[in-house]
Design a protein around this nucleic acid. Sequence first.
DNA 1: CGCGAATGCAA
DNA 2: TATTGCATTCGCG
Length: 432
Amino acid sequence: MRAGREALAITFLAPAVLAALEAQGMAKLYLEIENPLVRVLARMEEVGITIDRSELEGLHERLTTETRRLTDVLREVVGRDFNLNSPIQLRQILYEERGLSPTKKTKTGLSTDAATLEKLRYEWPEFIEPLLQYREVEKLRSTYAEGLLAEVAPDGRIHATFNQTVARTGRLSSDQPNLHNIPVRSDEGRQFRKAFITPPGHVLLVADYNQIELRCIAHLAEDPGLVAAFTAGEDIHTATAARIFSVPEEQVTIGMRSTAKMVSYGLAYGMEAYGLGQRLNIPTEDAAVILNAYFTAFPNVRDYMDGTVKEARTRGYTETLFGRRRPIPELSNANYRVRQAGERQAMNAGIQGLAADIFKVALVRLDQALEAAGYASRIILQVHDEVLVEVPEAEREAVGKLTVDTMRHAAELRVPLEVNTAFGRTWADAKT
DNA sequence: CGCGAATGCAA
DNA sequence: TATTGCATTCGCG
């Protein structure tokens, strides 16, 4: 057991503490979820995950060569030496010397982030395009190639720390290293998942909840349209797009589906028309039309959001279905912006928090079920809605079924919980 | 060396 | 003016 774990542990609560929690209706949360989870996390940390060091070293070498090449290209274009990693120096080159006009500001000046550069791309492509490439490659090189190599223990495995009391919504967090943000979206980044492997005779089981946060919204809002779509097992983004744009599902285009997806996810974060417009790169007015269409199609969702904020304002905190409370003092702050941020936090807490609670129940029960059945399979990682299990070949089929079954029934909502699984020798191979 | 800011990776 | 995290880098004090 890692140092600090026992201090952090909330197991063995003093009777007085338990009585206080009971009075607040929170004893169940601690006794059935948080206390047993302490042991699950300790075991995950102890077991760790096997790393193919040479795979990481190969990536490091390739990325180092590429950053050097791009550095040369960029210095050649500008005609002098400068620090590519300094936003201040980049700002000077792009906006003072070249005279470009960015669409976004930071707290201290003009922004040079990727979204901003993307919009300026064709005004100075010979500089901005290699710069965007440099940013991507340098991120992978420094954070993932160098960062992960530095964390490989003498046993050839990475033993991250999983924090139970950091995220304010009830999620777990991971550090040293953070295994919750290993790249997957870009082809280059995804290569890092090839370095996460299993010992001989074992296979990696990856099981993830399908759309769990949206299912939580459907349940909490009791929205007939959303509940019906999930119950029917439809592709939720296509179904949503059909309702937003008032077309039959067969006529939903890729773009419409993509917009619907953006709206659905933005909802859980309290996004407004301005934010949607920014992300879709369309006028705020057009984004407002889309948002209104969404709330017309799924009216209970808006009611749920409004009700959640109102309740949180009265009580000073939000509470998940399982009794997890999050104080939100920002709701009574004198500053309008701070209050608005508090409202978004209130809207998000019940949704992200419920999903986190369900996942924690699944982790505890899966760990107990594996132990009770005498399996050698071990939970080695969780990533918010996904669990990785290291499975001896002989247990493959049985543990796959047990995992799906446990996750599906961790909670009974108004909509079914669906779980996807995949097996592989590496994390990259186990694509669900 | 510590810290805030900027940036970017994930769910 | 979209939530929750963590790591890296720069640049200041």
